[in-house]
Design a protein around this nucleic acid. Structure first.
Lengths: 101, 101
DNA sequence: GGTATATTTGTCAATACTTGACAAGTCAAT
DNA sequence: ATTGACTTGTCAAGTATTGACAAATATACC
């Protein structure tokens, strides 16, 4: 389980019976790139997520959450203190969100 | 509140009555760099954290957690779905940690 | 005012990292 | 052994980050 985003879009693509060769051009990339994205070797650009959501007929938000989660995971994946760091970060986010109201 | 790490080390440095000019050379950087790190404009290198913890007579883990939290925060700071993404990431971390046992 | 010390800000070349593009590879089906 | 789908490797080009320095600002003291 290397990339939740990648796994998800592969599942969705297969569900739609689409080949890499069909999807890649819509994102203006080659199949090699898209293959790597699905495998989690490379990251898709944030701006491409809505396009992909359309193609795969799924919610943009669902994909964005998974994509962000992958980025977050990347930061702390080998850290003993991952959970603690996440808690601190979360606290800060909640603080900011409260302010925005 | 731009960088929890930066704020913390500034507080600690001041508590020790140290000047940037005194601390910076110990980290092999100039005061300008360290100033930016304290302000959260730039990031310190992970490997420098233990050195800094020694200088500031604090726990390496405390600083590392704050530093990681800053990196995490950076990923999702402008995201409506920040909290959701954090939850997904956390779930994955817990899953992996359980496996490691 | 002027000087000194501490910190901050701006700039920019050097370095490091990521991406795009292509070629060559594997794998499965026929 | 050919075809189609996908994967992997490589590397130049494009981006981003860092290190180093100069200059600016801030504060305190005389």
């Amino acid at each position: 389980m290397n990339s939740q985003f990648g796994e998800r879009i592969r599942t969705l693509r297969e569900k739609q019976n689409l080949y890499l060769r069909q999807v890649a051009p819509l994102l203006e990339m080659d199949t090699a790139q898209l293959s790597k994205i699905e495998k989690g070797v490379r990251q898709i650009k944030k701006e491409q997520i809505p396009i992909l959501a359309d193609i795969l007929k799924t919610e943009k938000d669902e994909l964005l959450i998974l994509w962000l989660a992958d980025q977050l995971y990347d930061v702390v994946k080998d850290e003993k203190l991952a959970t603690e760091a996440m808690q601190v970060a979360e606290k800060k986010i909640n603080l900011i969100n409260r302010k925005k109201k």
